[in-house]
């Protein structure tokens, strides 16, 4: 079974969902990255089987696609959480204790930046600056910005995102 999955022959469901994306770009050059982006929008990340399917359909070696996907930080190879936490590690946040904020969340959720909790509730990431230095230290959850953080505030903030 695992062999089957790794070869990406895991059934027609994936093919069906990707088909619309392939159809849209058929016959056009330089469309690998848009295809990867749209596939990721559909699945939330890029599962192996999807990469395999894209490799076969676009006639690209899997190794090349893997190279692209790991080069750009916009692509994800692991499932993403329902809520994306972005903890700012920019200069202003750094001097105002951004590292402490990050460490607190790492400990509380038991994950490292780039990882997702087992229940798929949170994905933790760091960002270099979100342009809200006046509010440092700051983090974003999905599209919400939370500033002037203290570790006391964090449990209450995290709890709001189910």
């Amino acid at each position: 079974m695992e062999q089957e999955q790794r070869r990406g022959s895991g059934g027609g469901k994936i093919s069906g969902q990707l088909q619309a994306i392939f159809d849209k770009y058929r016959g056009q050059q330089g469309t690998l990255i848009p295809i990867l982006q749209e596939a990721q929008n559909r699945y939330g990340y890029l599962p192996r089987e999807v990469i395999g399917e894209i490799a076969r359909t676009t006639d690209n070696p899997v190794s090349r696609i893997y190279g692209i996907v790991t080069f750009y930080s916009q692509f994800h190879l692991k499932p993403r959480g329902r809520n994306i936490i972005k903890v700012c590690q920019g200069t202003a946040c750094h001097v105002r204790g951004g590292k402490k904020i990050l460490n607190f969340i790492e400990d509380k959720l038991g994950i490292k930046p780039g990882d997702t909790t087992a229940d798929l509730r949170y994905t933790l990431e760091t960002v270099a600056c979100i342009g809200a230095c006046g509010l440092a230290p700051v983090l974003m959850v999905n599209d919400d910005t939370h500033g002037r953080l203290t570790t006391e505030l964090l449990p209450w903030i995290l709890d709001r995102y189910k």
């Binding site: 899997v62 190794s63 893997y66 190279g67 790991t70 080069f71």
Partner: peptide
């Protein structure tokens, strides 16, 4: 055979 690629950055 395309085994290798540069990955990450």
């Amino acid at each position: 055979v395309h085994v290798y690629s540069f990955t990450r950055r």
